[in-house]
Design a binder for these strands. Structure first.
Lengths: 135, 135
DNA sequence: CCAACTGTCCTACTGTTCTATAACAGTTAT
DNA sequence: ATAACTGTTATAGAACAGTAGGACAGTTGG
């Protein structure tokens, strides 16, 4: 379990960490029910304050990706979003539009873009299956 | 030309504005060569400081979407990214992965996701063609 | 030239992020 | 019970990002 923080990236450390955990959960490297590293050990490993780790975990809890239990730890949840169906669809469309708009400005054509999306979907699917069979 | 700022969104105003202009350029509502609103009039209309508008324009200039000329104004550029091909592909993959990861946590399956992406691509394509024929 | 417009620069205030520290409360194994 | 873990809360301070207003410099049309 190793996370990589870039202190010169401009992006807040707690968001970098939250992104990486969210990513790991999506590709099965972190399984539902699995415990995240405790605040203090991880804060030492990443050379970051405890509160910064706690803020990342709080961020993920707000998104329904982990649950924290005082005294026990922070655990990856089984997949369930705290948002209603219309809200989830709206959130996802916003994210998709950002990618589509970026593709336009980077002059990536429609078919190339769709091919990239398929590749990434397959990649995550493969990773997920491998992680589930492995355990 | 009307932009909509949400002061309670948590997202910085200058980024909200940059996003909307980038979006408008991608769907042809803003054409290459067209001038953006001047700093002061737009800052009055949106009830924000001139410098906030200027920061949004600077953000877009760094992404190669607009060019500003002191004394003249800020203009939408013909489509050309300031980044090299590998950098552009990496930027786009990061954006795509964010959407794919979000789809996973929102429990949107692969086929539904792909269908949403196709819909949005078609939507932008249609908008772009309509804008180009209209002018 | 000059008035009215354009964007730019500098300074200041505010909120956020991160750090650091301390004290607190729940859980677990001994 | 106690020791050693877990996360939580509160506080303070430094560094930085976001926003704002005044003064400045380039451009344009009368």
């Amino acid at each position: 379990m190793i996370f990589q923080i870039d202190f010169q990236a401009g992006k807040p450390v707690y968001l970098q960490l939250a992104d990486q955990i969210r990513y790991a959960a999506a590709c099965g490297r972190l399984q539902p029910g699995e415990a995240l590293p405790a605040l203090r050990p991880l804060s030492e490993e990443l050379r970051v304050n405890r509160n910064t780790i706690a803020k990342a975990y709080a961020e993920l809890e707000a998104q329904g990706i982990v649950e924290t239990h005082p005294g026990k730890g922070c655990f990856v949840t089984a997949n369930r979003s705290p948002f209603t169906e219309p809200v989830r669809k709206s959130l996802l469309l916003t994210e998709i539009d950002e990618a589509v708009v970026m593709a336009h400005h980077l002059q990536v054509d429609k078919e190339t873009f769709l091919q990239l999306v398929r590749e990434r979907l397959d990649y995550f699917e493969t990773k997920l299956e491998a992680a589930q069979n492995g355990k």
